[in-house]
Amino acid sequence: MKILVFLALLGLHSAAGVTHSLKYFYTGSSQVPNFPEFVTVGLVDDVQMIHYDSNTKKAEPKQDWMDTFSADNPQYLAGQTEGLKGTQPVFKGNIETLKQRFNQTGGVHVYQNMYGCEWDDETGEVNGFHQFGYDGEDFIVFDLKTLTWIAPKQQAVITKHKWDKDKAFNDYWSNYHSEICVDWLKKYVNYGRSSLMRTELPSTHSLLQKTPSSPVSCFATGFYPDRVMMFWRKDGVELHEDVERGEILPNHDGSFQMSVKLDVSSIAPEDWRKYECVFQLSGVKDDIIINLDEIRKPGFPLGAVIGGVVVLLLLVVGIVGFFLWKKNKKGKEGFKLASTSDTSSDNSQQQIPKA
């Protein structure tokens, strides 16, 4: 079974417009050590803004601007909390149902729901996503074009037939993804604009190499937003061979980090000066460039930087705090959920059905 920590990854958007996203991740688990049986995390533009788990039994804002939003909407957190309390036993029951279908007994099991929407603030284009997973693999997916459910697993066919018959249920989700979710996303972006639309250059941009024969990793951290490009080039020409591009990962403070590796085993020492790592942040005119030969200079703080990377990676694991199955299709990294009432919360937890 694969249980993966969620790592958000988005490509470089056009400078003319920004694609905003609202995503919710629901995770129900059984016998996972030191992890709540039920966790919900909400993110706006891949920044965590609300959290609920079965230990605290309380929806809590995770950004200053969400504190303001909650103060302006007094029933919001109470609505979130009550709805999620009601959803928690549904997830627990669905785990037991799926254990029977998969002929399982004890052990670690995880049932998840990912749903939400993306909105381009220039073109107005909207995309929605909604699916469920079990034990690290897709279980059932909602097709927004046909308003029917797709069952990748034979064990999900029963669920598909049950949910396809509920027209009101499917019509609700069609309306949610095309309208309700986007309305709430716009509200959140409006409150968090000063934070979500800020631009921050990397606090660290360094070269890392474990041994003289290891690949050289160009590492940047502390930048925001995650609309970046980072690559190696030789004599001004971007390289594609012998290059391994890493994912954009979240830091504990809401900023991001990224690395791109270069295999230097076939590069002659005298040619190192021809190679450079380039960091480009959307909306910022000037590139940040570091020459490969910098790593060969005396006093380069290699050990300190590598130690910093380890700390940062540990922080990434610590702040995410929920599981997500691996996504294989581009554009389906995020999913979310919302409600019909502007006075309570944006989550329609009563719409989470039994499998």
Rank of each mutant, 00 (worst) to 15 (best):
L147F: 09
D120I: 13
S174A: 02
K165P: 14
V141P: 06
F139E: 04
I180E: 04
P152Y: 05
D164F: 10
Q155G: 02
G133L: 09
F129V: 14
G133C: 10
E200G: 10
N170E: 03
E137H: 10
E200F: 11
K167P: 06
A151D: 02
L201S: 11
C181Q: 03
H177F: 07
I158F: 13
H177S: 06
R193I: 05
V182C: 14
V157S: 06
Y176Q: 09
F169Y: 14
E137S: 13
W119R: 07
K153Q: 09
D120R: 00
W173S: 00
F142D: 03
G133E: 12
H109M: 11
K162S: 06
T204A: 03
T199S: 15
Y176S: 02
G136K: 07
K187T: 09
L196I: 06
L201V: 07
V110F: 08
D143R: 02
D138I: 05
S178A: 13
E179W: 00
Y176V: 12
D120E: 15
N190A: 11
Y191H: 03
V141W: 12
D135Q: 08
F129Q: 04
S194M: 04
N113A: 07
T146A: 15
G116L: 06
R198F: 08
Y111V: 07
Y176H: 07
F139P: 05
G128Y: 06
N175H: 03
D143A: 06
Y111A: 06
L144S: 07
T146S: 15
K186P: 04
Y115C: 12
E200A: 11
N170G: 04
T204I: 08
V108Y: 08
N170I: 00
R198Y: 09
I140G: 14
E125P: 02
C181S: 01
T199E: 13
G136M: 05
S203W: 05
Y172L: 00
C117W: 04
W163N: 12
T148D: 11
V157I: 15
M114G: 05
E179D: 10
D183A: 10
S195H: 12
V141S: 11
V182A: 15
Y111M: 10
N113Y: 12
S194P: 05
D166N: 13
P202L: 05
Y191Q: 01
F139C: 04
Q155D: 11
W119L: 07
N190R: 05
F139I: 00
C181A: 01
L144V: 13
F142E: 00
D143I: 00
Y172D: 01
W149H: 09
Y176M: 02
V126G: 00
Y115K: 08
R193F: 14
D171G: 00
L196S: 01
D171T: 01
E125T: 03
E179R: 10
K160R: 14
Y134W: 14
Q155L: 07
D135Y: 08
F142Q: 06
K162D: 15
F169K: 01
Q112K: 15
Y191T: 02
V110Y: 10
D135W: 07
Q154P: 04
N113I: 01
D135R: 01
K160W: 13
K187P: 01
W163E: 03
V157R: 06
S194K: 14
W163Y: 15
I158T: 14
G192V: 06
C181T: 05
T146L: 11
I180L: 08
F132K: 05
L147I: 03
H130W: 10
K186S: 14
T146N: 15
F142Y: 11
L201T: 08
C181L: 00
W119C: 02
Y188M: 04
N175R: 07
D135T: 09
